[in-house]
Design a protein around this nucleic acid. Structure first.
Lengths: 240, 240
DNA sequence: CGCGGCTTTGATGTTCATCAAGTAAAGTGG
DNA sequence: CCACTTTACTTGATGAACATCAAAGCCGCG
């Protein structure tokens, strides 16, 4: 938790890449004119964050608009005495900067890589400039950001209405269906972090996972999870 | 809960007002050129919703961008068997349409007036058109919407981390400081709705209110609340 | 090797939802 | 207008769900 934010001026971290051939272009930067895309491309830094490294921290001044190119990050709030609350786990395209990036001076959330991740960083002023000039682009940004914030709010209210079994079922299915698209995967987070994400104590996360294992709903081997009975997990998730 | 959405074509409900002299102009529609403001003004409907009337409902097709001119509304999700969950209580300027208005086809939330309210409704296409043409306006909309969604997310995580006492203290202070700006006010919602807003059972809302009354933190007379010991309420809110 | 962080299980106690039952208030139809 | 129904409010009792505490094994790391 006390790791410093990665220095982005270490030469070896930089990756030169051509935005025109980037597969993300159509998602984040559709509707840009060629010269606008160029303006972003030459000012962009692509930085690699290793698992555990912090992209930005709550309270720091916002200088960049960033989006995730590859990898997985968590964003979370730190609550005084080191009690974190994870707001969301974001995969590429999911994480279009922090949602307050245009309305606040400082980051409202911290972001840390939970898998090795590539993050593209564009100076905020460059994005603002283009928003002001290109309304179609602005509308695209609005759509993306509202989708993100709406999914956060929806997930939050969903989780709140479930009991512990339902929450664990929810998060197991979330990784299987939303993140990894497969029924067997390695958890990218610790049991404690799962607790921080779905509002329960670490011990109870473990207890429920063990219970699910005993009930043959899943197989567990350390971080590796294999879903054995998805139908029943979905029932638990819906009715729990 | 089964009330139908108010028909907006009843002649007597319409209010003609001139956007140029509207005190909201600088908040929602700053950066508009005069002809753009005119374009909105002539297509705008201002509709009065009486307490209890529904502005729009989850699942309905989105046709309007709306914002609250006066009054107070709740927006909430309905959870199958009539179990509502209130996401937010919004006062004027706070409620700049629903946050998914530009990214979804249907409303993701229902909105109901909890005090008599005036709502301005502008056809969505008219707003879109101006966003595409006027980047400064787009940036203003982005800022407003992200502020709203951020405050929802923050409130949600805040409330989740509190015990029942802390939650009641939170909501009492919320009405006093954010909504009414006074230490004595009439609750605009029932005990049940308070429970739906801060995630607790109706009975426990009542129990906590009674406890606070016995402890001389507040005075209660039906819907009327008077805060007697704000310092201690704040302590409960912070440490609860 | 020893230390700290992560994981696991069991025991304990508190918090909170639910049930039950009753009063008050507000809307509804004759 | 009054009987009737429904909805809101209130209090107490009960039990379940969940957090917390405690103790121990495990693993990686300096």
């Amino acid at each position: 938790m006390d790791k410093t934010v990665k220095k982005i001026d270490q030469q070896e971290e930089h990756i030169r890449c051509d935005c025109k051939s980037c597969e993300l272009q159509n998602l984040v930067f559709e509707h840009l004119l060629e010269n606008e895309l160029d303006a972003i491309c030459i000012r962009k830094e692509t930085v690699v964050f290793k698992k555990g490294e912090t992209v930005c921290r709550m309270g720091d001044e916002i200088k960049f608009f960033h989006y995730l190119k590859t990898g997985l990050v968590k964003f979370y709030k730190t609550n005084g005495v080191g009690k974190d609350q994870i707001i969301r786990i974001a995969k590429p395209f999911d994480f279009i900067s922090l949602i307050t990036v245009f309305s606040a001076k400082e980051y409202q959330y911290s972001v840390t890589a939970i898998e090795d991740s590539e993050v593209c960083m564009v100076p905020l002023w460059a994005i603002r400039e283009i928003i002001e000039r290109n309304g179609k682009f602005a509308l695209g940004i609005i759509q993306k950001m509202t989708q993100v914030s709406d999914s956060i709010i929806t997930a939050n209210t969903d989780i709140n209405s479930k009991n512990l079994r339902g929450r664990i079922a929810y998060i197991l299915l979330y990784f299987a269906e939303d993140i990894y698209k497969t029924d067997q995967y390695d958890l990218p987070v610790s049991r404690r972090e799962i607790g921080e994400l779905i509002e329960m104590s670490t011990e109870n996360v473990i207890r429920m996972l063990s219970e699910f294992r005993k009930d043959k709903l899943i197989a567990i081997d350390g971080k590796n999870i294999k879903i054995l009975n998805k139908v029943f997990l979905k029932k638990l998730c819906s009715f729990g």
